[in-house]
Simulated assay, not measured.
Amino acid sequence: MAGQDSELSELIARVVLRDRQAFLDLYSASAPKLFAITLRLLKDRAEAEDVLQEVFVKIWNNADRYLPDVASPAAWLNAVARNAAIDRLRARRPAARSEGLDAAERLADPGPGPEAEAILRSEGRRIETCMEELPSDRAEAVRRAYVEGESYLELAERYAVPLNTMRSWLRRSLIQLRACLSA
């Protein structure tokens, strides 16, 4: 895992210098996973492919923004892909036309109201409480898989367990979380 991180870091550093071969190598190493992230969020193959192209344009133009002290290269790449897909989802929403809207509607905060925020915070606490019931390595694996986007193979390598064991860990952890959350 550390070898892959150092390789990705080196490729990103070379992309900053406009090394086209490094960019191609970075694409080869990371495109499948980044495509999976965009496809999972957008649920449309053609749109995910378009966003993936945008992601690599952003990486080419903004590779100098990667800070190795802040995040792993894989986490940074995943975040670029996730943010691009989320931007695309937001762009899907029809834009509100200001014609015909009164001043109160134009000034209204589009975010969730106090009641919705309280519910979200409550749900977040419930999830954290349920996560604490999992063994710490299982909880960390769930976070890495479903929040950071690590693959089963990456997690199996990280925890030095067979791939099928990692799949079982995650499956059982999700079942336990579902049971806890529905209780």
Rank of each mutant, 00 (worst) to 15 (best):
V161A: 00
E148A: 10
M166N: 05
A139Q: 11
R88G: 04
R144S: 14
E128V: 11
P114E: 11
Y146L: 03
R90Y: 08
R88K: 15
S173Y: 01
V161P: 01
P94Q: 08
A91I: 05
P135K: 13
L177V: 03
R125H: 12
N164R: 11
A118I: 05
R171Y: 12
R92P: 09
M166C: 04
E115G: 09
L153T: 15
M166Y: 04
G113K: 06
W169E: 04
E117N: 08
A108I: 10
D109A: 11
P94Y: 07
A141P: 01
R90T: 11
V161Y: 01
G100V: 02
R125Y: 01
Y159W: 14
A118E: 07
A84N: 02
A96K: 15
A145D: 09
L101W: 06
L101V: 08
N164T: 11
S151V: 10
R144A: 15
E123M: 14
L120Y: 09
S122G: 09
A103C: 06
A118D: 13
E150I: 06
R172Y: 05
S173V: 02
R167Y: 08
L174S: 08
A84L: 04
S98H: 11
A108R: 13
E148K: 13
W76D: 01
E154L: 03
R172S: 10
L163W: 14
D87V: 05
E117H: 13
P162G: 06
E115I: 11
A145H: 13
S173D: 00
M166P: 01
I127D: 01
S72C: 08
A74E: 13
A116N: 02
P135G: 02
P135H: 03
R88Q: 13
R143T: 13
G124Q: 05
R93L: 09
N164K: 05
G124V: 00
V142W: 07
A85M: 00
Y159P: 05
L120S: 12
L134D: 00
R167C: 05
Y146G: 06
S98W: 12
L77C: 15
P94V: 06
Y146I: 08
L174V: 14
L155I: 05
W169N: 02
L134P: 00
A103E: 13
S122D: 09
I175R: 09
A141N: 06
S151H: 01
Y152Q: 05
R138T: 10
A103R: 12
L174A: 10
L177F: 00
A103P: 06
G113C: 07
E148H: 13
R143Y: 15
R121F: 07
E154R: 10
A96G: 08
A108K: 11
E132P: 03
L77D: 07
R106P: 04
E132H: 08
E128D: 15
R171S: 15
R106W: 14
R92Q: 12
A84C: 06
A74C: 04
A75N: 06
T129H: 08
A79P: 03
R144V: 03
R172V: 03
D137L: 14
L163R: 08
G100S: 13
R172A: 09
A108W: 01
V147D: 09
R158P: 01
S98K: 13
L77I: 10
P114A: 12
E140K: 12
G113N: 12
S98T: 14
R158K: 10
